[in-house]
Nucleic acid binder design. Sequence first.
DNA 1: AGGCTGAGGTCGATGGCGTCCACGGACTGT
DNA 2: ACAGTCCGTGGACGCCATCGACCTCAGCCT
Lengths: 152, 152
Amino acid sequence: MDAIDLSLVDLLRGNARLSYAELARQVGLSAPAVHERVGKLESGGVIRAYRAEVEPETIGLGVTALIGIVEDSGADTDDVLEAFRAIPEIESCYFMAGVESFLLKARVGTIAELEQLIVRLNRTPGVNSTRTSIALSTKWENRPQAVAPPAA
Amino acid sequence: MDAIDLSLVDLLRGNARLSYAELARQVGLSAPAVHERVGKLESGGVIRAYRAEVEPETIGLGVTALIGIVEDSGADTDDVLEAFRAIPEIESCYFMAGVESFLLKARVGTIAELEQLIVRLNRTPGVNSTRTSIALSTKWENRPQAVAPPAA
DNA sequence: AGGCTGAGGTCGATGGCGTCCACGGACTGT
DNA sequence: ACAGTCCGTGGACGCCATCGACCTCAGCCT
């Protein structure tokens, strides 16, 4: 992980569909060299995936909620996690410090679906209680934070 | 937005670097047709961006925090928003229902940097108080939720 | 009914890109 | 000094992106 790798990561976080040729121009190497570096970043676990970022409303996922989960005393955290993993509406899952063991970000189409989701969560073995906050709007999300030095 | 568009969105949410030729094979159209459809999805605001998803620890952003913000009574929400937007560590910003007007997801390298961030937030005009929860680990994040019908 | 029009597709051509390979220079340890 | 390793370059070749021409079908106006 040198400065060039960091630049590549920044460039791809900004636009994952840049061609290797374009990346090469930006960092001042040849295309094959960039190809090899990016390949290593992928197989080395630095780059996990390339994803299109979609406006959720346009695909019928207009309701965003953040849900704190309090576990039962003596619950098996791994089991709870697996149960959460099986619920597609849960987009993100953080294991937290504090009374609430998990914080979930969920996306559904309607408030009625959110209600169903909350019921389902409360019924999940190991879950003691849930606390749901609704996001009225998403100002921005997953903004990539530049990490490379200014410029070679 | 027909079923093919939804499939394209799903495919690109799964892997943003798929070639048009490959997308075309998957949805059963020709490459130029797919090219045009994806172009329309982009310019129509459905696809906002393509981003590489990076393991944060590997680029020196090992600390994730979720921060609730209570505004001063009479604060100008837009001004507060602009102040937040200028802080690169804030990756996501949701405008919430409830006492806390905003929920922020921030990523920093160290606890010391988190402390500085919290101080900065508390000093921001219009911010009455902050409540920070630290994520001990991210189980998963931004998992794409399939939205297309099973398969043509 | 007939024909115009526009949307949205296919096909074919061409230039650029991805990707493989052979080669070369700098650093390192012996 | 020398050999090995790492990391890069340049060339070659086949696939892909992308443009233009054309086709087909649905809807609509006359």
